[in-house]
């Protein structure tokens, strides 16, 4: 049986396939989630597609010959699962047209190394946010948070809170771009 070991986790013992898969999936999950997120507007939909992707990727894992291609390989699977999801739900939800999803996905697959770098840079950029803003944005993105409730707690309107979150998100992106430009 073929086994492979991630370079950073180099050990002498070969891993069982499920361990290899789990390690690779956990390592690249954030890139994959970002990839899916661009194509689907609702976090619950992203979760559903991520489940389908994880199951499909595991089933096909034995066909992956080069583990260094895992991220790209799972993105190709995700592209298919997103399109399948769209066909199931397009009638009752706002989901991007198929040709746009294909463009977003095809271009996104080519950006995998960039996505990885962006995610790394974001650790630094989020840490640099003023404490108040960081706490706010993490509270807003926390599981189960209602933006309406959070806005009420802050004596703001829901719309103004969304605007503030959009500004923070954009600030973070500018920080990422600066960080990557400096490192280039």
């Amino acid at each position: 049986m073929r086994t492979f070991v991630e370079p950073v986790n180099n050990t002498t013992a070969p891993h069982a396939p499920h361990e290899d898969f789990l390690r690779l999936f956990m390592r690249h999950e954030a890139e994959l989630r970002a990839f899916v997120r661009a194509c689907l507007p609702c976090a619950a939909d992203v979760d559903e597609v991520m489940q389908e992707v994880s199951v499909a990727a595991w089933r096909k894992f034995s066909t992956l010959t080069d583990p260094s291609m895992f991220a790209r390989w799972t993105c190709v699977i995700a592209r298919y699962e997103i399109l399948m999801f769209r066909r199931r739900h397009a009638r009752n939800r706002l989901i991007l047209d198929e040709d746009i999803i294909e463009k977003l996905a095809d271009e996104g697959i080519e950006e995998i190394p960039l996505r990885h770098a962006q995610l790394d840079a974001l650790d630094h950029c989020v840490a640099k946010l003023p404490r108040e803003r960081r706490d706010l944005v993490l509270a807003a993105y926390a599981p189960g948070t209602s933006i309406k409730d959070l806005a009420a707690q802050m004596n703001r309107t829901e719309g103004s809170l969304y605007q503030l979150l959009s500004r923070i998100r954009h600030e973070l992106l500018r920080c990422v771009e600066r960080t990557l430009a400096q490192g280039a």
Binding site: A34, R115, Q118, L122
Partner: peptide
């Protein structure tokens, strides 16, 4: 959109 989705996914 892809870049901002990456920010979004990271924050989640």
């Amino acid at each position: 959109l892809r870049a901002l989705s990456t920010v979004d996914a990271k924050l989640q």
